[in-house]
């Protein structure tokens, strides 16, 4: 992903994007079952058949609201648009990262024993988060 690091990203997905006729950046997409199912899969959300009509309707309505954004004239060459489109960090923002430092377990935010991570996990065994088998 070219935009990595500049903003939140949904999980990568191997499925092809919505068919190209609907991929119109400057116009309203067609909101239908296929779009809802595709987006839900990207979001790792199960949707039941019964939920689909309601979600199509909601997405349609919320995009009506969001379309108000189009009424705002964005000056040509606005730096955010330029940089986002080029997949770069906006130069209007400032990085606040610092040098790496070591911290002690007693420091707030310092390293924890593994069990502390597992204490709230639904399935934690032998110092590991347990998932269904994914390989072999």
């Amino acid at each position: 992903m070219s935009e990595a690091g500049s903003s939140p990203e949904p999980p990568n997905d191997s499925e092809p994007p919505i068919d190209s006729e609907r991929r119109m950046d400057s116009e309203r997409p067609v909101v239908d079952e296929a779009l809802v199912r595709k987006t839900a899969r990207l979001a790792r959300l199960k949707v039941s058949d019964e939920e689909i009509p309601g979600l199509v309707d909601h997405l349609e309505k919320i995009l009506d609201l969001v379309d108000t954004l189009r009424s705002v004239k964005i000056p040509d060459g606005h730096p955010i648009v330029e940089h986002q489109s080029a997949g770069q960090l906006s130069q209007l923002t400032v990085s606040v990262t610092r040098e790496d430092q070591t911290a002690q377990p007693t420091d707030a935010g310092g390293p924890r024993d593994a069990a502390a991570f597992g204490a709230n996990a639904p399935d934690w065994r032998d110092g590991s988060f347990v998932t269904p088998r994914v390989v072999g």
Partner: peptide
């Protein structure tokens, strides 16, 4: 979550 995923998804 669904809307947020949509506005970040490829093409939109």
């Amino acid at each position: 979550i669904l809307l947020g995923t949509f506005v970040l998804s490829a093409g939109y």
